[in-house]
Design a protein around this nucleic acid. Structure first.
Lengths: 226, 226
DNA sequence: CGCAGCCTTGAAAGCTATCAATACTAGTGG
DNA sequence: CCACTAGTATTGATAGCTTTCAAGGCTGCG
């Protein structure tokens, strides 16, 4: 893959979108393309940090494993998103979660050393990073709040509306992963997720067709939430 | 308050600790001292961002209010900590939580405009910010995971051990707020918190004396956790 | 056609929330 | 110095939601 095509792909990520061509080329220079087969591990929690990633295609889940064997999906990463940038700035520097491909995926690895050098030379990059991390922080705060303030139905409804983007009747949501993974992301069991969707469907709020969900009646959906 | 004494107080915050004197003075220049009485609101969720804060003395809670009236304490801020920095980099720019003083508190407000200018002139600052935000992100990921992976006892045990710093017998923890606030931070009801502490005490794992808790037997404590 | 993986549905158990009452503590005023 | 009060914490009983365990159904692929 040529460096210029790498640069073009980097532009797909909001983190790099507004960089000038020269800087983008420098980033592309240190980016290493990687393929990841479905179910393959990219890194494991506790491993020393070696770089962060830009997901070009596919889906990756970030999850934490409890000693009991249960796992909590913290986030599901989609195309264009970056992840593990924050680990770059922790002194201890080890990944806090496992990263696993939910489907065959294509990504770029940005090595720690090279990026750190870039960061020193081009301060504009730091701002972009701060923006990206702020968004992630904000989402996490929402998740923490939802986990304690809302019940299973409320969290499912919130998730569907967030994924749909707009709250219009007819909006369609494609679940980005198996339902068990989404359930974990929402902090519930797969069985509960299934039951909640069932109730929302019976109520006429949504239509479920495999992995796509159509929002029939946003108002009804809201009313079901906690 | 003179600018030099302000600078000295800024050094108490890890975010500013390693800044050179000149830069520290510039930060002090744009910092505004504020007093906050117990139970007073510093900002409300949804308010437009005007600046972030350094807590010099006291305790402040960041919480989110649900429509139902229930509130979830996302974080309890102690002396030396900064908060709401992340909001600076969100375009929409409004606080995502309420900030309320748990006791009479003293803090510094760092205005958005001035700090943004500093950030452009002195790129070193950005690195410090990235470090601070990374730590906060990491903690939030832990919280999210704990909320779904551990039961009430597990979360209380985790909190006590984290607050104690070391896992030695005899370590003492001073609860930084009323038990109801800690309970909310842990995602449980005050009654449940009380019951869990009671059980841990009966088991001989801890001793409770008002708002200070002594860890008698870390191993026993761990064994109680989920 | 048959199997494997995923999802759904059912029944029972468990944990935590909720509601309610009592105990405690610190600060106030007599 | 003691009584009182308001806020806070504990304890008890019950209800509700979610998990767990189990079985059946569905779908796509070999």
């Amino acid at each position: 893959m040529t460096a210029t095509s790498l640069a073009a792909q980097l532009r797909a990520a909001p983190l790099f979108r507004d960089l000038d061509g020269a800087l983008l080329a420098e980033v592309a220079d240190i980016a290493r393309p990687r393929e990841l087969a479905r179910d393959a591990l990219l890194f494991r929690a506790g491993e020393p940090f070696r770089g962060f990633f830009v997901l070009l295609a596919g889906h990756v889940q970030l999850a934490r494993l409890a000693p009991s064997g249960h796992e909590k999906v913290v986030e599901i990463i989609g195309p264009g998103e970056t992840f593990a940038e924050a680990v770059l700035f922790l002194d201890g520097g080890s990944y806090p979660v496992d990263a696993r491909a939910l489907e065959d995926s294509r990504l770029l690895e940005i090595g720690a050393a090279g990026f750190n050098r870039l960061l020193d030379e081009r301060p504009g990059l730091a701002r972009n990073l701060l923006g990206a991390m702020s968004k992630r922080l904000h989402r996490l705060v929402q998740d923490v709040a939802a986990l304690s303030l809302e019940d299973a139905t409320g969290r499912v409804v919130g998730y569907l509306l967030a994924q749909a983007g707009a709250e219009e009747a007819g909006a369609e949501v494609r679940l980005p992963a198996k339902k068990a993974a989404i359930a974990s992301r929402l902090g519930i069991q797969p069985e509960t997720f299934s039951r909640v969707l069932g109730r929302l469907r019976e109520d006429g709020a949504i239509e479920v067709a495999g992995e796509t969900i159509r929002i029939r009646d946003p108002r009804r959906l809201h009313r079901n939430a906690q």
